[in-house]
Amino acid sequence: MSEYERSRTMPAQPEQVFEQAADVGRLDAWLPGALHVHAEEPPAVTVHEDRTDQDTPALLRAERDQMRIEWGTREQGDYAGWLQVAGIGSGASEVTVHLSFFDDSHDPGERAARDALDSSLRRLEEQVRTRTDGTAG
């Protein structure tokens, strides 16, 4: 089993960050570019991976009261992950993303996982900035 975790501070209220991150219709805007989530009957989703051109049945749950999103494969149990948003004062938030790979064949390796998590957090921050800048005036 392999686990990876990255965090990033974002200049927005935790509620704003969580709302952007948990919007199933906008997940493609911040997830790794090769992954696409298609909503089904909640909490069921299908994740399409461009690299393998495969669809994987998965679950996605957003717990607003905990500011936490959890996901994982439905049948195989190959991977799971979570995103946690925490307020750190002064209108800022810290977002942590954690991935667990239970099947080595799905583990992209430390560098690829770290790069994908950092890139996703950076894109999420851009989405949050765009949304909060657009509503500020």
Score class of each variant (00 low, 15 high):
Q13I: 06
R74Y: 11
A34P: 07
Y4R: 01
W82V: 11
A86P: 06
G89S: 11
L27Q: 11
R8G: 03
F18K: 04
A92D: 02
T9G: 08
H36Y: 11
L60K: 02
G87P: 03
S93R: 05
E63N: 14
R114T: 15
D53Y: 07
E126I: 08
E94A: 04
R111S: 12
A116D: 07
T96D: 00
V37R: 09
G33S: 15
F101S: 04
D107K: 11
V47M: 05
G134V: 02
P108K: 07
T73W: 04
L121M: 11
D55H: 01
G87V: 00
V128F: 00
G134H: 02
D104E: 15
I69C: 05
T46W: 13
Q76W: 08
Q20H: 11
A116E: 02
V17H: 09
Q84F: 09
M67C: 03
R8K: 08
T52W: 03
A80Q: 10
H98A: 09
T52P: 07
P42F: 03
T135P: 07
R122M: 13
L83F: 06
D133H: 15
Q84D: 03
D78K: 08
V85Y: 09
P32F: 10
G77E: 01
V17C: 05
V24P: 04
V128G: 04
F18V: 01
T135K: 14
A86G: 11
V85N: 04
P57M: 11
P57K: 05
W71Y: 07
V95S: 02
E75G: 08
F101E: 06
Q84W: 04
F18H: 06
S93C: 02
E126H: 15
Y79W: 10
R122G: 12
V128A: 06
Q84K: 13
L60S: 10
T56I: 04
G72M: 08
V45S: 12
V37L: 15
A136M: 03
L99F: 11
D65G: 09
D53S: 13
S93K: 01
E110A: 15
L59G: 14
R131H: 12
A39Y: 09
E5H: 14
R68I: 06
D55A: 04
L99M: 03
Q16N: 14
Q16I: 05
L59F: 14
W82Y: 15
R6A: 10
D107C: 03
G134A: 07
M10E: 03
G81M: 00
R123E: 14
E41K: 14
L27R: 03
E5P: 07
M10L: 14
A12N: 08
H48N: 13
V128R: 08
T52E: 06
A112T: 12
P108C: 02
A21S: 13
R68H: 10
